[in-house]
């Protein structure tokens, strides 16, 4: 057998770029594999769309009985709801990997990832996209398109810039919350996403404008579990013009990211696999 002298290597060489490229490559591969399970794919998207439509119906029913809550009208609340869907959808699309942590820990599957010369998180998140986010993103866009004209949005350069800052920051908050919450599986093997369900539940509070809640809870949603940055602060920036809170949203995003990363690191250090 002759020596094959082809020395080409696929992809970029610099490490950081290469990791990014590999992440994209893994996602692509999984997307193709996933598309072959059509029923599963459609069910996933359908289920998510159903969930969000029901949420919208709920909002409609509520506002059919009361014209405004704490100064927020139906259309303003719908705008907020649409923003939440967009932000959470964005985070969920690239955050699917977090949900596999629990199972991977319980079944000892992190062994496999630990044998590869790539950061474990990159491999986990490269394990799949959150397809259900398609429904959220689509529906959210539709809601924004319908609700937008009914709300007197203060359009300015500032508003646009604020949105550009606030939406990715909000996505970061939710993404980090899911990572941190799912990492709890390192401490209580078998908890299987319970904490993540809890946090997702808490993020449902972001469906309503913040002033609905008592001071203390509103403070928690801004300072401790900053889910108010998912929808309320960006929505308020649209309705009333950008304010300090929306400009500070990157702090919330990066802070959450840092906390989540620390939790993840601490969890991974505890990983012991399973007895074979």
């Amino acid at each position: 057998m002759g020596v094959d002298a082809d020395r080409r290597i696929h992809g970029p060489r610099p490490y950081a770029l290469r990791v990014l490229w590999l992440y994209g490559r893994m996602l692509g591969q999984h997307a193709l594999a996933r598309l072959s399970y059509e029923t599963d794919f459609l069910l996933t998207i359908g289920a998510s769309a159903l969930t969000q439509v029901l949420g919208l119906i709920f909002l409609g029913v509520v506002f059919s009985r009361i014209p405004s809550v704490r100064g927020w009208t139906f259309w303003q609340a719908a705008l907020l709801y649409g923003l939440l869907l967009e932000v959470r959808g964005l985070a969920a699309a690239f955050g699917e990997g977090a949900w596999s942590i629990g199972g991977a820990v319980a079944r000892g599957e992190l062994d496999r990832l630990l044998l590869r010369p790539l950061p474990v998180l990159v491999q986990l998140y490269g394990g799949g996209l959150g397809w259900s986010a398609i429904a959220d993103l689509g529906l959210g866009a539709a809601i924004l398109a319908v609700a937008g004209p009914h709300v007197a949005i203060v359009w300015s350069f500032g508003t646009v810039a604020a949105l550009c800052v606030a939406l990715p920051s909000g996505a970061m908050v939710y993404w980090s919350a899911m990572l941190a919450a799912n990492s709890i599986a390192f401490w209580t093997v078998g908890a299987r996403g319970t904490v993540a369900f809890l946090l997702h539940g808490v993020s449902e509070l972001a469906k309503f404008p913040l002033p609905v809640y008592p001071r203390l809870l509103a403070g928690v949603l801004t300072w401790c579990l900053p889910f108010a940055f998912l929808s309320f602060y960006p929505a308020r920036a649209l309705v009333a013009g950008p304010d300090l809170a929306v400009w500070l949203s990157p702090l919330a995003g990066l802070g959450s990211l840092l906390c989540a990363w620390l939790v993840w690191r601490a969890g991974l250090a505890r990983y012991e696999g399973t007895g074979s």
Partner: peptide, 16 residues
């Protein structure tokens, strides 16, 4: 039995 994504099913069932 038809999907591997129970999270989505559970959520929409709960929402419904």
């Amino acid at each position: 039995f038809w999907t591997t994504n129970y999270v989505g099913i559970a959520w929409s069932r709960a929402a419904l």
